[in-house]
Design a protein around this nucleic acid. Structure first.
Length: 225
DNA sequence: AAACTTGCCAACCGCCCCGAG
DNA sequence: CCTCGGGGCGGTTGGCAAGTT
């Protein structure tokens, strides 16, 4: 036995909302709030809609301060970073972008960003032919990497741009280029995002970076110099 | 100009979570 | 505890618009 439907499917309207329906819903919520119960709300205000449909309409369209379209480069980068980091947790991603809804971001990702990223990746792969020799790891310490330092266990981070740091809880992130030495690194710094993942309490810490060109995430252990 | 394809996005579906009883 | 049901979420669909053949 399946669970009971949330409303009488035969007697609810489906499809696009009319301006009249929008006005009814908006006016009621503006005056009284949702009343804590979406399921009974449409009956109260004489809408032949499923409660869930009302909730969706409110959250994705009628709610104040909603932004539609016109995603900025910064928003693009943040969405990509978060998607690569946490996957398709659209509600969490939306929470980082004021005025954006999870539905909007999901649509934007599926229709544009995914292609943009894959396109970048393809271009990058073509430019790399023939296949390069694997890059040596980079070291975030001034110490000799051969000295069994705990800072030697991280991946190379060939592409990131300091200008695009969006989020950081790493207390000396901004000084990373001068405080941290990357022996042997003379690669191209292009597009990417760097964000902190831990505070260096005892002098050791780590941060992560997303390489926007290759669509990859890197983790870098770091030691206060 | 018509037919077809592609892109976009609002909205629906169904599952899971979690709090109330 | 267990059950029920509303809220929340991610995946998917359907219809319209724009672009292409």
């Amino acid at each position: 036995m399946g669970r009971a439907p949330c409303c009488d499917k035969a007697n609810v309207k489906k499809g696009p909302w009319s301006p009249e329906e929008d006005a009814k819903l908006k006016s009621h919520i503006d005056k009284h709030g949702t009343g804590g119960n979406w399921i009974t709300l449409p009956q109260k205000i004489g809408l032949k809609r499923c409660g869930k449909s009302c909730r969706l309409r409110w959250l994705n369209y009628l709610r104040p301060n909603i932004k539609h379209g016109g995603f900025t480069e910064d928003e693009d980068n943040l969405i990509c970073t978060l998607y690569i980091t946490i996957g398709s947790r659209w509600s969490i991603i939306a929470a980082q972008l004021p005025g954006r809804t999870d539905n909007d971001i999901k649509n934007y990702w599926n229709t544009k960003l995914k292609k943009k990223l894959l396109g970048n990746r393809r271009k990058q792969q073509q430019a790399r032919l023939p296949q390069p020799v694997a890059q040596p790891p980079l070291y975030a310490s001034h110490e000799n990497p051969a000295s069994n330092s705990p800072t030697t266990n991280f991946l190379a981070m060939p592409n990131f741009c300091y200008d695009q740091i969006l989020e950081s809880d790493f207390n000396y992130m901004n000084g990373v280029s001068s405080d941290v030495n990357f022996p042997g690194f003379d690669g191209m710094i292009s597009e990417g995002i760097m964000y902190g993942v831990s505070q260096p309490l005892d002098g050791l810490g780590s941060f992560s970076a997303v390489d926007m060109v290759n669509c990859e995430i890197y983790t870098l252990a770091i030691r206060r110099s």
